[in-house]
Simulated scan of single mutants.
Amino acid sequence: MWRPWVNASASEHKSYVHLDIGAQRTVLAVHKKILAENGPYGAIKRTAELTEYSESTVKRVVARKEPRKPKVNKSKFTKIDSFTKDFIDRVISDFYSKNMSPTTMMIYEELTKDGASFPYSQSYLCKALKHLGYRYSTLNKRQILMDSPRLLNLRDQYLQEILRFRDLGKFIVFLDETWYDTHDVANKGWTKEDSNCTLDAPASRGKRIIILHAGSEDGWVDGALLLSAKNMANCSADYHEDMTAALFERWFENQLLPNIPAGSVIVMDNAPYHSRQKELVPCTNTKKGDIQKFLKKHQIDYPDKATKKMLLNIVKSKTFKKSYHVDEKAKERGCELICIIIIHFYLSTYFI
């Protein structure tokens, strides 16, 4: 018998498969013919031999009595082509460019606006978005802050400055700090309750070591490594709070500046302990007597019976040049300082 729907040999039976409607009709017709000629005994086995499908597949088709349309695997999203994917990406990107958080309904309305051809219903759009890698989750506000116009402008200024110094052939040094807890151990691992799967971890919390160093394209600066230890019981969760301006300034003056060429360019982030001012301009937290002393020092007159608020308004009406400890020390060596915004982590010393 000629069987145009089969390419394999009769001895090779196919495993569990989903047959299309045409193949199901063929199986039913062959089975019906065998029943009419030979009766029900061995009809399933003979049909499987002739159609070269497994007996289980033939039984399943015969049991239904009518061809059934096979289920569509929705997870494949066969309707999503590159044009539709780009269309969805553009719509969602436009919402965020307008500082709007899009919902499924907002996206669907935009996709179907002005009679645009979109192959999914609104209820199916959510699954399509997940297939494309989108997740309805908490927004990354840090990224929004990083992309603000003010910070983007500061980033561009930094890039222009660093390129200018490189063109001038300046020796550029990058500095940063990190930490290490001496008794850090792994928190998870494969273990059993009735076995000796334990770590030889010390009972005490140990010490936190602050590591401060500087380097350039030629490698680490000789003699600039600083290791400062502190008991963990006295440490905060954020190591930045364990680093002090006095410690940094002492390292900057005694270990960094003497070991780099005069006229170098020093790059660092704007952590508070990097930029301690020599003289703070009074603010609302400043005592009234200190504000008066500040105004007298700068030879600024004020009424004898002025209130604290009046004194602060006088301070705000004037412009004071900020002076930093590390800036003064760098100038003595003929060095220049560049500060990068700490939130732009990808511009840190390790990625320059």
Rank of each mutant, 00 (worst) to 15 (best):
3 R>E: 09
144 I>H: 09
47 T>F: 02
141 K>C: 12
213 H>N: 04
292 Q>L: 14
62 V>G: 01
248 F>E: 02
195 S>N: 06
99 N>E: 01
75 S>P: 02
333 R>T: 14
67 P>D: 14
232 M>F: 03
319 T>K: 13
21 I>F: 14
300 I>W: 05
311 L>K: 00
49 E>P: 03
70 P>H: 01
83 F>T: 11
85 K>D: 11
69 K>E: 14
266 I>W: 00
128 A>Y: 11
256 L>W: 12
80 I>Q: 04
281 V>S: 09
134 Y>A: 01
96 Y>S: 12
109 E>N: 15
100 M>D: 12
157 Q>G: 07
296 K>H: 09
333 R>P: 10
192 K>W: 04
219 G>S: 00
255 Q>G: 10
236 S>E: 08
221 V>A: 05
90 R>I: 13
330 A>I: 01
251 W>K: 09
293 K>M: 09
304 D>W: 04
47 T>E: 00
241 E>Y: 15
174 F>T: 12
210 I>D: 01
48 A>Y: 02
202 P>M: 03
207 K>E: 06
88 I>Q: 07
266 I>N: 00
1 M>K: 08
228 S>R: 08
76 K>I: 15
265 V>A: 08
2 W>S: 11
242 D>E: 09
212 L>P: 06
78 T>S: 15
58 V>A: 05
259 N>M: 11
352 I>D: 06
140 N>T: 12
175 L>T: 14
264 S>A: 15
89 D>T: 07
326 V>G: 00
106 M>A: 13
88 I>M: 08
172 I>Y: 06
72 V>N: 07
164 R>W: 08
323 S>A: 04
100 M>C: 10
288 K>S: 03
102 P>A: 01
91 V>R: 05
53 Y>M: 06
109 E>Q: 14
281 V>Y: 08
257 L>H: 05
337 L>K: 02
307 T>H: 02
164 R>K: 12
188 K>M: 00
218 D>T: 12
311 L>H: 02
322 K>Q: 13
298 H>K: 06
223 G>L: 01
85 K>C: 10
114 D>Y: 04
167 D>G: 04
271 A>P: 03
291 I>Q: 04
264 S>Y: 13
121 S>E: 01
214 A>V: 01
343 I>M: 05
122 Q>V: 04
13 H>V: 11
287 K>L: 12
321 K>T: 14
